[in-house]
Design a protein around this nucleic acid. Structure first.
Lengths: 202, 202
DNA sequence: GTCTATAAGGGGATAGAC
DNA sequence: GTCTATCCCCTTATAGAC
C-alpha cells in the first residue's frame, strides 16, 4: 500500500506538494499573518525543519504558492457566454467573477492577500503577469462580443478592458468587505450596462 | 522654552499623539508587517515600555490610528466641482480620488492595509462607518449633479453610488499596484463617461 | 502618574545527524 | 538525499522602580 504522506522519508517533490496544500489551508483559515513556517509544517504533520529543507525560505513558499494558484486563473474571463447581446455577455462575465469569489471567499481573499504581500516583498513578476493575462483575455472577449453584436467600441479597446478589469476588481473587493449580495449584484448589472453604452452601431 | 517632546516625563496625552505620529511614519515606510511596538517607540525616540503604558496593547494603537486618520476622509467626495456637465463633474471627482492617492501613495496604501487588517481583527465598525459616509456623500453628489444638468438617473441612485464607489476603488487600487498613470487616467475618464450614460433627459 | 528592566513566547533559519 | 535538534533574534506584555 501507499505509505501515509506524513510518514518518514518521502521525496522532496512530494513534501513540496504536501506543504503547499497545508500552506493554502493555513492561509485560508488564519490569513497571511497566521501563515508561519511552523503553522504550515504543523498542519502538514511534519517536523518544522523539513520546511527549510524543501523551500529554503518562507519567501520561496509564497512565490511557489502564487505560481501554483494563479496558473489558469486568467481562463475564468475566457469562459465566454454565447449571446449576441453585449450587455448580457458583460453582465454574465462580471457576475461570473463575482460567483467565483462567492463560491469560496476564503480562497480568493487569501490569494489577494498573498499577491499584495508579494508585491512589495520581492518577485513582482507573478502578479504583473497575471494582470496582463487578464487584460489580454478581457480585450479578446470585448472584441469578440462587439463583432458578434455588430457594434464598435467608442474608445480604445485596451482602455475599455482596463476599466472592466479595475471596476470588476472593485466590485468584487467591495463584496469581500461587506458580503452584501444585493449591492454586489446591482453593481455588476449596472457596470455591464454602463460599459455596454460605450459601444455604438458599427 | 517648550521642552523637547522626547524629553522625560511628559503627559500621557502628549505621548499618545507623539506615538501616533511615529506609528504613521513607520506604517508608511515599512508597511503593516513593520509596524511593531518597538519600531514605533524607537521612531518616537522613547523607550519601549512607554508604549504599553500609553496604549495598553498594539490593537489599541491600530484602532486609535484608524480613528484619527479616517476622520474627515469622506469629505473628499464632497468637494464638488461647479460644472453643469454631468460627465465632466464625474470625471473630476474620480480623478480627484486618484490625485489624493497619487499625492501621497504611501499614506493611502498604509491606510488600506490598516483598515484591511482591522477588519478581521476586531473593531469592524470604523471601516464600515467610513464606507457608509462615502456612499451617502456620493449619492448626494449624484443627485446634485443630475438636478443641475436637468437629467434623471435611469437606475436607483444608491445603486449608481455603489458602482461609482466600487469602481473608483478598483481604479485607484490598480494604480497603487502598477503606478500606470496613463492607464489610470484613461480608466477614470471612461468610467465617468460610462456612468454618465446611465442618466437620461428628465 | 510616568517609566525601566525583565520576562515569556514564537519567529525564521542552520549545522550537522542519519 | 532526508530530516532533527538547536540557535538566536525580535515580538508583545508586565511587574515593579522612581
Amino acid at each position: 500500500m501507499t505509505p501515509s504522506s506524513s510518514g518518514a522519508h518521502r521525496s522532496a517533490d512530494e513534501r513540496r506538494a504536501q506543504l503547499l496544500d497545508a500552506a493554502l489551508d493555513v492561509l485560508r483559515e488564519h490569513g497571511l499573518a497566521g501563515l508561519t513556517t511552523r503553522a504550515v509544517t504543523a498542519r502538514a504533520g511534519v517536523t518544522h525543519g523539513i520546511f527549510h529543507y524543501v523551500f529554503g525560505s518562507k519567501a520561496a513558499l509564497v512565490r511557489a504558492l502564487i505560481d501554483r494558484e494563479l496558473t489558469g486563473a486568467a481562463a475564468a474571463w475566457g469562459a465566454a457566454t454565447a449571446t449576441d447581446d453585449l450587455e448580457t455577455a458583460l453582465r454574465q462575465a462580471v457576475r461570473a467573477q463575482l460567483d467565483i469569489v462567492r463560491a469560496d471567499p476564503g480562497h480568493q481573499a487569501a490569494l489577494f492577500e498573498l499577491i499584495r504581500a508579494a508585491r512589495d516583498d520581492a518577485d513582482v513578476s507573478a502578479a504583473e503577469w497575471e494582470r496582463r493575462q487578464y487584460l489580454a483575455e478581457i480585450e479578446r472577449q470585448l472584441v469578440s462580443w462587439s463583432d458578434r453584436g455588430g457594434v464598435t467600441w467608442d474608445a480604445p479597446v485596451e482602455h475599455v478592458a482596463a476599466l472592466v478589469l479595475s471596476a470588476t476588481d472593485g466590485v468584487v473587493q467591495t463584496w469581500v468587505a461587506d458580503h452584501d449580495d444585493a449591492r454586489a449584484d446591482a453593481s455588476a448589472d449596472l457596470l455591464a450596462r454602463a460599459v455596454a453604452s460605450l459601444a455604438r452601431p458599427a
